[in-house]
Write a protein that binds this DNA or RNA. Sequence first.
DNA 1: ATAATAGTGTCTGTCAGACACTATATC
DNA 2: GATATAGTGTCTGACAGACACTATTAT
Lengths: 206, 206
Amino acid sequence: MIWRDSSGRTLADYPHPSVAVDVALLTVADDRLCVLLHEGRALPGTFLRIDETLRAAALRVLRDKAGVTGEEPRQLAVFDDPERDDRGRVLSVAHVDLVPAERLDGPLTPVDDLPPLAFDHTAIVDAAVAWARDAYAALPDPRGLVGPDFTLLELQRVHEAVLGAPLPKDTFRRRMQEHLIDTGTLSRGSVGKPARVFRRAPREYA
Amino acid sequence: MIWRDSSGRTLADYPHPSVAVDVALLTVADDRLCVLLHEGRALPGTFLRIDETLRAAALRVLRDKAGVTGEEPRQLAVFDDPERDDRGRVLSVAHVDLVPAERLDGPLTPVDDLPPLAFDHTAIVDAAVAWARDAYAALPDPRGLVGPDFTLLELQRVHEAVLGAPLPKDTFRRRMQEHLIDTGTLSRGSVGKPARVFRRAPREYA
DNA sequence: ATAATAGTGTCTGTCAGACACTATATC
DNA sequence: GATATAGTGTCTGACAGACACTATTAT
């Protein structure tokens, strides 16, 4: 049963914009926050199919263009400049995801050293980075970039990479410790005093 | 010049969702945060026209259904449940705006006493309220709900309405004072000690 | 005088940052 | 022993909340 308005038309009979889904897939590699670029100049994206959720489309992009499955894309904003895509009227629902680098193989570019990007993708990356910084400001590791077991130094390096700035180690330690579980084991084989090994507290994801 | 893909189709030739714009128009009336409802059970909304920006569509909704002009609608999120609208596949880009009650005439409902709403509009109102509380947490009056001249008590009443909770007057005063300009004049005619009259500092809008 | 509102001084607790110190491993 | 890393004690400054007090008006 298809709905029709008083003039007998369906919704699809009226001209309406196409909807794209673009994903800024972030990761930390070599202690730097990086984004996966398609052909070195654009974010992976696709058109939203008519019966698909945004989340499903974002996951499809990640699977088809980055070889990543099972992540948690998060909506950022809709980019709607009428001139943003010269193929026609296209809205882009920008998404961000943040995964450990081991799960990726595509070419990564540090976010503080981006080339000029296609469309309005630079603005999308900016929003994605802001989201990631916010997510990691409050919690130890909402997206599982370290782990499952890790030392505080390892965790701090991830935070500094996401933030793009150094952090004081004493304050960092005190802020994080209450959210972590001490496994009771010690790190081995490294120079210096062995560090305690921690684990994320259950359900601290964002 | 219309773009065509390798099979000669334009973007519009592929089935794609319609896009709606719904606006949670908030205000403070009788010291309570309220939302304007259409027919008592839905937010004002419209379909996005193909050559229109989201902002323009939101302003059109406010003008046509609320009689308000010249405001600052802000994007919240896209609601995309495939079943959310039984007329077809419709994405809703939810917006929020917050204006002084004097500029409205529609029926207002306190946000802490909402009836069941159509579609997923309850979730949109929740997101709008969260945005408003956040906006007013940091700054005195980012949307000009008081003013242009006001006493700290008047400002505090607005904050308490937005927050839905009382605030301590001494802390409130100390937090706000640095962002306000003392006009040098005093309130008159009220009971008690006359209050200083303040003005918003330039450019503290959000 | 009394009630009502405006405004401030001060104490406490919390937390971030700075700094210095101790502890324990590798080389 | 030298060096590198782990971890903690402590001081300071900022700020929020609580409380109490003073100040100034209308009635």
